[in-house]
Structure formats: structure tokens, C-alpha cells
């Protein structure tokens, strides 16, 4: 009996990969997370708030916003989208500095240099705005050709690239700061290195990108050229948003109301 129990625990531990910790909250199907300056931001849009935690899981505060959905934390600021067509720029204390109206159905936001890249579910496009909320261009559109999207979703950025989830096409597409298509990666499937229904992407530095897959329940690491590096975690229940911070990957399981953290190099 004991042996059986130990075996079960072992299996769970291995299936979850390098499970290092979890942060739980009383959320209602949160949509995105961001980590910055030692704080975890959980977008709890159906409760009209962004819940803020320290990295030990201590709830710090709530930032009240109307139906937030996507979030990006850059340069000490929070960029938050609402599917109601808004983008909020807040400082880390939650004070709104700017509010822009966006076109379409904004899903997520990534910041690269002085531009904001908004994934637009309505037109399946990547909309590029300047920091004053003025649209510069819109790229993409519906389709499975390179640069097009079916089920455009979350996005993140490195210093040079913007990574965009193309969910139903089961791939990650990369664009430069001007919105030019650069590359895409992801093979449709359910085996290691494959993507079935990618949901989120996070640039973790050193050319590594973390990608979550809601159906396979895996979080995998790729290099920016699409090369598969490893499975960081699998057996997760509908993982969606991912975020990288100081060598750790934060993964949101919205249906379990928890954020799991995984160390990229070895076990934390």
C-alpha cells in the first residue's frame, strides 16, 4: 500500500515537471498574469480587478478595473487590455496614468520599445499603437498563411521581437518592432515539441520562449527560432497564461484558481 502511494506521488511529481510552488487565489476564470518587481499580477477580469500578490503568494492588493483581460508589465508600468476596447496604463500601485480606446476586440498587449502590440480577436490581427494610443498599423488577418491568425490570443516580447499565439493554427508567430513577420514555429500535434492549442507565450531571456498548451496540459520551452528545448511541465489542467521572471516560469491554471511556478534550469 505504501509503495503504491509513493509511486502515485512520484508519478504526480514527474508529471508536473519541476513543480516548485503555487499561488492560489479566489478568482473567477482569470485570463492573464504578469510578474514584475517581485509582484504577481493576476487578471481577474470577471471580478473587474487585477489581484496583486507577492511571490510568496501573499495577497497585497486589488486594482479595480472594468473587465481587464490581458496584461504586460514593462518598465515599471502595467499595460492592461479590456475586451471592451480599452487599454489602461497604470503604475505599479494601480493608479491609472493613461487610458486609450482600441479598435476591435483587444485581447492582450506586448510592449516593444515605444510601441504597443495589441492582439485583436475581432480582426485576427496584430495592431500596433504608439505610446499615446495612436494606431500605427495593423498586421495579420484571418487565415493560416504565415502572418495570419486563427484564434489570435496572448502575446509577449523580447528586446527585438513580439511573440504572438496563433491558437487554432497551433503556432507562435514572431514580428519585429515594425510589425513585420519574422518567423513562426510550432508543429500541430500532441507529442513533445508539438503544439495543439497554444494559449500563451512568454519570453524568458537567453533566447528561450515558454509556451503553454491548454489541451495537452503542457508548458514547453523553445528557442526563438522554434527549436524545441524541453517540456517544462505537463499534466497541468488547462494551463493558459505564462510569464517569466528571474529564471522562473509562472503558469496560470484558471480553472484551478492557481498559478504554478517552475524553475527553468533544474528544480528550484
Amino acid at each position: 500500500m505504501r509503495k503504491f502511494a509513493i509511486a502515485i506521488i512520484f508519478l504526480i511529481a514527474t508529471s508536473l515537471g519541476a513543480l516548485s510552488g503555487e499561488i492560489k487565489g479566489n478568482w473567477k476564470f482569470p485570463s492573464d498574469i504578469a510578474v514584475s518587481n517581485g509582484k504577481l499580477y493576476v487578471v481577474d477580469g470577471l471580478n473587474n480587478r487585477i489581484a496583486v500578490y507577492d511571490l510568496y503568494g501573499q495577497h497585497l492588493t486589488d486594482i479595480k478595473l472594468d473587465s481587464p483581460f490581458g496584461i504586460a508589465a514593462k518598465d515599471g508600468l502595467l499595460y492592461v487590455t479590456s475586451q471592451k476596447g480599452k487599454l489602461y496604463v497604470l503604475d505599479e500601485t494601480g493608479d491609472i496614468e493613461k487610458t486609450f480606446s482600441l479598435k476591435g476586440r483587444p485581447i492582450d498587449v506586448a510592449k516593444l520599445k515605444d510601441r504597443l502590440f495589441i492582439t485583436d480577436g475581432k480582426t485576427e490581427s496584430l495592431d500596433i499603437y504608439d505610446l499615446n494610443g495612436k494606431i500605427i498599423k495593423s498586421v495579420g488577418g484571418k487565415g493560416s498563411a504565415p502572418g495570419n491568425f486563427v484564434g489570435i490570443f496572448m502575446a509577449d516580447s523580447s528586446k527585438k521581437l513580439v511573440f504572438v499565439v496563433d491558437s487554432v493554427n497551433a503556432r507562435i508567430q514572431e514580428f519585429d518592432k515594425d510589425g513585420n513577420y519574422v518567423n513562426s514555429f510550432g508543429v500541430f500535434g500532441i507529442e513533445e515539441g508539438d503544439l495543439f492549442r497554444p494559449k500563451s507565450v512568454a519570453y524568458c531571456g537567453n533566447g528561450t520562449v515558454a509556451v503553454s498548451d491548454a489541451i495537452t496540459g503542457a508548458v514547453q520551452l523553445f528557442d526563438i527560432y522554434g527549436g524545441f528545448e524541453k517540456v517544462l511541465a505537463k499534466g497541468l489542467y488547462y494551463p493558459t497564461a505564462v510569464a517569466c521572471y528571474k529564471g522562473e516560469v509562472f503558469v496560470l491554471e484558471p480553472l484551478k484558481n492557481r498559478v504554478l511556478t517552475f524553475k527553468i534550469q533544474g528544480v528550484k
Binding site: 499565439v165 487554432v168 507529442e191 515539441g193 508539438d194 498548451d213 488547462y238
Partner: peptide, 23 residues
């Protein structure tokens, strides 16, 4: 090398959700 052994039919709730979760 399977990432999952869980079988999702087309009408599985999570399968539906995978498009209806905001994407």
C-alpha cells in the same frame, strides 16, 4: 513522447473552451 494521454472528443467542454476562453 505524448504530452497527454487524455482523450478529448470534439464536444469535450475543455475543447470548446479552448476557443471560447477569450480567443
Amino acid at each position: 513522447k505524448l504530452l497527454t494521454t487524455e482523450s478529448f472528443t470534439a464536444a469535450n467542454r475543455l475543447m470548446c473552451l479552448s476557443c471560447h476562453d477569450g480567443s
